[in-house]
Nucleic acid binder design. Structure first.
Lengths: 246, 246
DNA sequence: ACGGCAACTAATGTATACATAATGTATCCC
DNA sequence: GGGATACATTATGTATACATTAGTTGCCGT
């Protein structure tokens, strides 16, 4: 793995975890010493993070960690729901060959089997997250437009906006089971809608599905009594397992 | 202006104009000689263009010009309509103070005055494009979410997906007048919908508004008899005036 | 003749030295 | 004492030399 990617990952993690607080100016030489590499890969990583939106230009030169309010996270989640909705609507309206839905159906079946097994151990949740991510991958693959996929990749890199973000409140045990069941029902509805070429329905479910993440985020925020969500260590701890930082 | 920005702009123009054809591998040393700068600003520009989606990674290393099919452009335009629709819907549902709509209304009034003046000279079209861009800026400013704005900036950098893209067929003189009138009606509808807090209506009009660009694109493609739209010199000639390449 | 391995070539990845611009401080003048 | 200017400091912007890796070509062996 190249130094640039290394630095990129570590910097993203440091930003999302709050170790680098919002507004913090990122100095190239300081980061260079911290990671033990030259300024070159640092600069590359900073440029990429700025393009991703995690950093903002600080004054005339240099970058600073962008502040993420709860509203920004709501915005990101809403944007993901909207874009996924568009992709699924167009896939449904265009129509997809029957066999193309098979991978998504497999995901649903395997998830059913997993959820039927018993209490929600951490390991089970981890496997669930993999299956959930896989389902979203498969279902979005039904829409070919690469611009939308590019935008969705961007959204996934925003704090708490990935398809797995809705499990951040999973430690709220008495509710987690319900949340999983609701998500499964959404997944089933999406597949069914696409099969029946019901574009508007597919879009509506996708949006409602994204709202699950919103609800659990707000639950988590209320429980933790946090005003600003991103850069909060306790939330990030929950978030970390649900997301690939690459 | 820094060398990096210089190279970035020139490279973007070369890509969009088709001077650098799709699939062309971009070698740092070659570009370095071409622009008379070192590899460093070249690399920075390449990274940014890749993040924007105009380049793709070529094999294990290096970048190549991404191919843009007509479908990709449709995808980008649809994405813009969808995201603007979301922003306007949420703005309408939340409600905006009455005075906030004034700038947009001013744009509409000034555009009315402009269109009433007479035949569509090039200079008039240029002023129209400025007013149109300004209207979109003002109306989107009613929604504060920065993620959506980030995504929209991305879309605007895709070929022919900017808010001004719908005028690329303006040389089809007998239709341009109608197109302008339709666009104006959309603008009026959007403002009215937001004023009345009709979120769904605002969203629907925004989507239909983006479809104008799609229609004129297809008209232009049919006239020019082009299979691939991006990287086509004649289309770019039309496109150039309607877009800031910065 | 064909396939595989090795060396060479040319590209990107990285480090560092240098240039330039911005910012903060200190001093001097008003 | 306050403000402005000049200088010093520190940052980013750029150039270049070096490292490393991937791709290609040619040679050798089977």
């Amino acid at each position: 793995m190249s130094q640039t990617v290394n630095v990129l990952i570590k910097l993203r993690e440091a930003i999302l975890s709050g170790e680098l607080p919002a507004g913090e100016r990122l100095l190239e030489v300081a980061l260079s010493k911290r990671f033990g590499v030259s300024r070159t890969p640092i600069r590359t990583a900073l440029v990429k993070l700025a393009e991703e939106g995690l950093l903002e230009e600080a004054g005339n030169a240099g970058y600073a960690v962008r502040e993420f309010s709860e509203a920004d996270i709501r915005d990101a989640i809403e944007a993901r729901g909207t874009l996924e909705g568009m992709a699924l609507r167009l896939a449904a309206e265009t129509g997809v060959p029957g066999h193309a839905l098979q991978p998504a159906k497999d995901c649903i079946r395997r998830t059913d089997a997993l959820l039927a097994k018993g209490p929600f151990t951490d390991e089970m949740v981890s496997r669930y997250l993999d299956l959930n991510a896989e389902f979203h991958r498969q279902i979005l693959a039904l829409y070919p437009g690469f611009v939308v996929h590019l935008l969705l990749e961007r959204v996934d890199k925003m704090p708490f906006a990935s398809p797995n973000a809705f499990v951040i409140a999973r430690k709220n045990a008495d509710r987690s089971g319900k949340v999983f069941a609701i998500a499964q029902e959404h997944h089933r509805g999406i597949v069914d809608a696409i099969e029946r070429r019901q574009g508007t329905r597919a879009e509506a479910i996708a949006r409602e599905h994204a709202n699950l993440a919103l609800q659990t985020l707000e639950t988590a925020l209320a429980r933790e009594n946090l005003s600003s969500a991103a850069g909060s260590a306790p939330l990030f701890e929950l978030f970390h397992a649900s997301s690939r930082l690459t």
